[in-house]
């Protein structure tokens, strides 16, 4: 990994302004790995009367805005982040669910599906 600012001295690296890509990353326990949190939430849903829930797996969701010249290098960068930090490869699997040009705040859109209060 390069240090922030490295290469900005002679301007050659920043010859073209980079574009911003927003990637959605979903991290879940690997298949077969025990998920106590998912089980507890499953139990909580069942006690609320959701008898039709078969299983819950709980994980984490990240939205990362990354500067890159194109979608391919953005994805490479996000995948590296997943391998090194966002997921623990020993027990977790991840998926870069969506990656598109844009800016992070505008991409949130959680208000659309409720629960914002």
């Amino acid at each position: 990994m390069t240090e922030p600012g490295v290469g900005s001295g002679d301007g050659s690296v920043l010859a073209e302004p980079e574009r911003t890509w927003v990637a959605d990353v979903v991290v879940l326990p690997k298949p077969g790995v025990n998920d106590p949190q998912g089980e507890a939430i499953h139990g909580g849903l069942a006690s609320l009367g959701y008898a039709d829930v078969r299983r819950v797996r709980s994980g984490r969701f990240f939205r990362v805005a990354v500067a890159a010249p194109d979608v391919h290098s953005a994805r490479v960068s996000v995948v590296a982040m997943c391998d090194q930090l966002l997921a623990n490869p020993v027990i977790e699997a991840y998926r870069v669910a969506n990656i598109a040009e844009g800016d992070l705040e505008a991409a949130v859109g959680l208000d659309d599906v409720g629960g914002g209060s």
């Binding site: 106590p36 949190q37 507890a40 939430i41 139990g43 909580g44 006690s47 609320l48 709980s58």
Partner: peptide, 15 residues
């Protein structure tokens, strides 16, 4: 309570 899974206290409130 309930392992504090999801959020601390979140599941207990339905007891």
């Amino acid at each position: 309570s309930y392992g504090d899974y999801l959020r601390s206290g979140a599941i207990a409130r339905f007891a």
